[in-house]
Write a protein that binds this DNA or RNA. Structure first.
Lengths: 330, 330
DNA sequence: TAGCAAAATACAACCGATTGCAAAAATCAC
DNA sequence: GTGATTTTTGCAATCGGTTGTATTTTGCTA
């Protein structure tokens, strides 16, 4: 910048104002400086600017996908969420630092915020992090969490309506006459529990020939595959599987088919997320669309509001059922 | 930091040295300062440190997945690559800024580098960016590209051996007696062309009853699905499909099955990438494993070497065939 | 053309760390 | 105990912008 100042014969403060399009500088001067800046390929030094402005124009996104934990590293849901958040942040000229902690004990959240590397933080999922999120103190002002609505949270939550999603699936299964449902997922996770509760709400007070069986599985497809195989080898019969994610549902379909069961004739399968692959397997996967793109936008809008000091409340994104061949084909 | 200095009664320069574990400060003084820092939850201000040290301990990763372009936003390959790079970077205490440009014209590369937001840049894929990468000038010293080895590149390339991957697939198809192969992908992309050439190399000089047909498809699963359907409706017969990615292969299987063709009995299908879902569809997908985890590590190691001023050369990562039911099941 | 307001520019402090060098304190040798 | 070393600490410049305030220039009015 001092180089530009010499070139154009003005003070660096004027150069700075020109580059920031301040109304304080004369139009001609501004044009001249901008032309020089363009010609020399000058780019403002973000490090100096960040220090002075006490901001880094960067948000952080933390996705806990540590091995052996609750989530599978290759679940496309995350990529779609990253893309949605990234593009929403770009609209505000924010960059995005991505952090995928290797272990539950990593403390990237605090570090990113307190060091000023990120102005705010988006955390995807509450699993195993609720206490830590609660302990953020003041820094919680600059954190937004994607997850199911739980009352105990004193941080800001954004998420789809997991209960409603579960309920929609229940209604659909009821509509197509399925009564013996397997719920595949880990209801110890808040989001999954809500989906389960939504599902159950449909059958409240119904006749005794309906049943919902909970089969615990992490978000890892291989585990879901094994669980489903075991289920087929068991004695209980079932005519529908509702999985807590599309990855689990796809694995379940694979397991069912390998056991000679037809989807959806013998067993209807429903997933959750509506990832790209859901439409591209055979049969197509009926699933819940959380509208991840909108979710990402709301996360970013909410976070930027919080950073600006505006109070914000929890937000639900719309949730809808996408019906494909895994429930009504055949 | 000045707060810590007052608390401990020493100069901030001593505090700085203590926090950086400099041998210049007395052991007792150091312990005392560290204890205070811990108690007060102090974190070094990265913005000030970055400015002074002329480095930001941050790498950038650019993934061109703009809509309508060559790649599908939900391709799990990218997520696995992001995870691999992120974890490799973390080992060197680097953070990772992720950039998913919306359009081919975005110039995040230059901005991130020249503004100093990132010390170096990893670009995933050369598609549509070759000229731009060439025009980086000095900044090319801090860029590493994941992609197929092409001679014209004057930037540093890291990638798996795409030719060898294609060759391995060819050998395998030959072994199982398939002769009429459809190659599904866009050979205008350097990586895909190499895979295609590898495949072709197997049949060089063979008898006339073998054929390889190129069906152009972007990396979008929906397009591959339509192309495969059209293929089934065409007159040419084929007994194998080699797709340029697993996402395409999965879509192709879906299309084949929906047309009543059996995989692998009627048509064998091979993918590329070995994403998590490849093992979880029915039948399991035979595919090429690029060892993305290792690839991410090499990308980061190479980039950090370049940043340090060490000359580095292009690197190939190992490539291997993973055989599953989509070619030898049934 | 003087006088005053408005516009444009320059000056200088500041953001919060790092680091070369000077100064002070501690240790050692004799 | 004194001088020479070695440790340890403090001082002050520096990184490269931004911004409040002072100053200069320009433009307008009478």
């Amino acid at each position: 910048m001092s180089g530009l100042a010499k070139l154009s014969g003005v003070d660096i403060s004027t150069v700075s104002r020109a580059l920031n399009d301040s109304p304080l500088v004369n139009g001609k001067t501004k044009d001249h400086i901008l032309k020089l800046a363009h010609e020399t390929g000058y780019a403002i030094n973000a490090r100096a600017r960040n220090l002075r402005k006490q901001s880094s124009q960067t948000l952080g996104i933390v996705i806990p996908v540590y091995p052996g934990s609750h989530q599978n590293l290759s679940d496309p849901f995350f990529l779609e969420m990253i893309a949605a958040v990234s593009q929403a942040a770009a609209k505000f000229d924010y960059d995005l630092i991505i952090n995928l902690p290797n272990s539950p004990s990593e403390i990237a959240e605090r570090r990113l915020l307190l060091s000023g590397k990120a102005d705010g933080l988006i955390v995807i999922g509450q699993a195993g992090r609720i206490e830590r999120l609660r302990s953020l103190g003041d820094a919680a002002d600059r954190v937004v969490v994607w997850g199911g609505m739980i009352e105990a949270a004193d941080y800001t939550l954004v998420g789809s309506d997991n209960f409603e999603g579960g309920r929609l699936v229940g209604e659909h299964l009821k509509d197509i006459g399925r009564h013996r449902v397997v719920f595949l997922g880990d209801i110890d996770l808040p989001e999954v529990e809500l989906r389960y509760n939504g599902l159950m709400s449909v059958w409240n007070g119904d006749s005794a020939d309906t049943s919902v069986k909970h089969v615990r599985s992490s978000f890892d497809g291989h585990e879901a595959y094994r669980q489903t195989l075991a289920l087929c080898e068991g004695t209980e019969s079932f005519d529908a599987v509702f999985a807590a994610s599309d990855v689990l549902a796809i694995a379940a379909i694979h397991a069912l088919q390998s056991k000679g069961l037809r989807v959806p004739e013998d067993v209807a399968v429903v997933g959750y997320d509506n990832i790209g692959q859901a439409a591209m397997i055979s049969p197509g996967l009926t699933t819940i669309d959380q509208n991840i793109k909108l979710g990402g936008e709301i996360l970013v809008n909410t976070l930027i509001d919080k950073i600006a000091g505006n109070p914000v409340r929890a937000t639900l994104t719309p949730t809808k059922l996408v019906i494909r061949g895994s429930t009504v084909g055949g």
